[in-house]
């Protein structure tokens, strides 16, 4: 496993750890950002859906309760 304390530049080049820790390409990071954005949109959509669904299903009843 990788040592989180060391950057790739500090890692010895000929060890298995160094071989396993490869810096990711720009394309990989771009795709990762797009995946993260899709997850964020999905989560926001889910929250909004539950909120609107609650309002639609319960409507004013939501506020008709003993305080």
């Amino acid at each position: 496993m990788s040592d989180p304390q060391k950057t790739p530049e500090e890692m010895p080049k000929d060890t298995p750890q160094a071989h396993d820790q490869q810096v990711l390409s720009e394309e990989y990071k771009k795709r990762q950002r797009r995946r993260s954005a899709a997850i964020a949109i999905g989560l926001v959509g889910l929250v909004a859906s539950f909120y609107i669904l609650t309002m639609v299903k319960l409507g004013p009843e939501l506020f008709s309760r003993a305080l």
């Binding site: 496993m1 990788s2 950057t7 790739p8 071989h19 396993d20 820790q21 490869q22 810096v23 990711l24 390409s25 394309e27 990989y28 990071k29 795709r31 990762q32 797009r34 995946r35 954005a37 899709a38």
Partner: peptide, 19 residues
């Protein structure tokens, strides 16, 4: 900075899956 865990992952995931 992000890393892949092993060279096997690098081979398979390569540049990662897109949306």
């Amino acid at each position: 900075m992000a890393y892949l865990d092993s060279s096997a992952d690098i081979q398979q995931a390569d540049i990662g899956a897109d949306v």
